[in-house]
């Protein structure tokens, strides 16, 4: 891997004005398997590709529920994501106790981004190696937000992160105008079609390797699983290959090459 003398400590600037350790952490996000989110006027949907470390092993979970109105999908170090998910659940629960209502997603995203940012300014801590998509429905409607190890956070209509996510981004950019008025079912289909571009080689989307979750007005955060998910997978197959764009050319590290920390990256 490319190295230089300014990358041993997060708090040291390179002469080019970069923080290399922070950028390496963001690289960990790109190594994680893809996940994406998209929103309509009423709902937010998360879709993710799961990896299995082994033929006989289970798939690493990519989507976590935070509260009835909020969930996350992650790309990067799963262990770091679990820490952050625990923090988010505590905050959501505490807000429910104190105020009796559900925590605003953007406020939690701000706090989360602050946690990430603190690590970029202290030599005693390592930046979190995880990128996160937060899907929520709160008092101000449906939301999709992305957080990254750099401490940046953004709100999106639709977004994809992780390995080969450029393909999904291209799909989402092409179709985003249909999203606001789309039904939940259409949103899920769009999500799965976008996700199908992120898959490696000859593999196909299947119930075991795909996670889908929805949240919206009158719809608590819920993962779509089993037969219900299979129905969506069948539907996009029927709707044809025309919708699946050719993988766009983003030079990314081949995700299935075994790396030392491969087990922890999802």
């Amino acid at each position: 891997m490319f190295r230089n003398q300014y990358d041993t400590d997060v708090t040291v600037w390179s002469p080019q004005g970069r923080l290399h350790q922070v950028e390496y952490a963001m690289e960990a996000v790109k190594q994680g398997s893809a996940c994406l989110g998209l929103t309509s006027k009423t709902h937010a949907v998360l879709c993710a590709l799961k990896r299995s470390p082994n033929e006989l092993g289970s798939y690493q979970e990519k989507i976590m529920k935070i509260d009835d109105h909020m969930g996350i999908s992650i790309a990067g170090l799963t262990a770091d994501a679990r820490m952050l998910a625990k923090y988010m659940r505590t905050e959501a629960l505490n807000h429910k106790y104190v105020y009796g209502t559900q925590l605003q997603a953007n406020r939690l995203a701000t706090d989360l981004a602050d946690m990430h940012q603190r690590c970029t300014q202290s030599y005693v801590r390592r930046p979190y190696g995880v990128g996160m998509l937060i899907a929520a429905h709160d008092a101000t409607g449906p939301h999709l937000m992305e957080t990254s190890p750099s401490g940046n956070y953004f709100e999106y209509v639709a977004m994809a992160i992780g390995a080969r996510s450029q393909s999904a981004k291209t799909y989402l950019e092409k179709h985003y105008q249909d999203f606001p008025a789309a039904s939940v079912d259409d949103l899920i289909k769009h999500g799965l079609k976008a996700l199908s571009g992120c898959i490696t080689g000859d593999k196909e989307l299947d119930v075991a390797s795909v996670s889908v979750a929805i949240v919206g007005a009158g719809q608590a955060f819920e993962e779509v699983q089993g037969a219900r998910l299979q129905a969506f997978l069948d539907a996009i197959e029927v709707e044809g290959d025309a919708a699946a764009p050719a993988p766009a050319g983003e030079p990314e590290a081949p995700a299935d090459v075994p790396a030392p920390m491969d087990e922890g990256i999802a």
Binding site: V98, Y99, G100, T101, Q104, N106, R107, T110, A139, T140
Partner: peptide, 16 residues
């Protein structure tokens, strides 16, 4: 300061 369009409800003040 958050300036996010969120308006606090009296029920939340009560619960707080």
């Amino acid at each position: 300061n958050m300036d996010d369009g969120f308006k606090r409800a009296p029920a939340e003040v009560h619960s707080y």
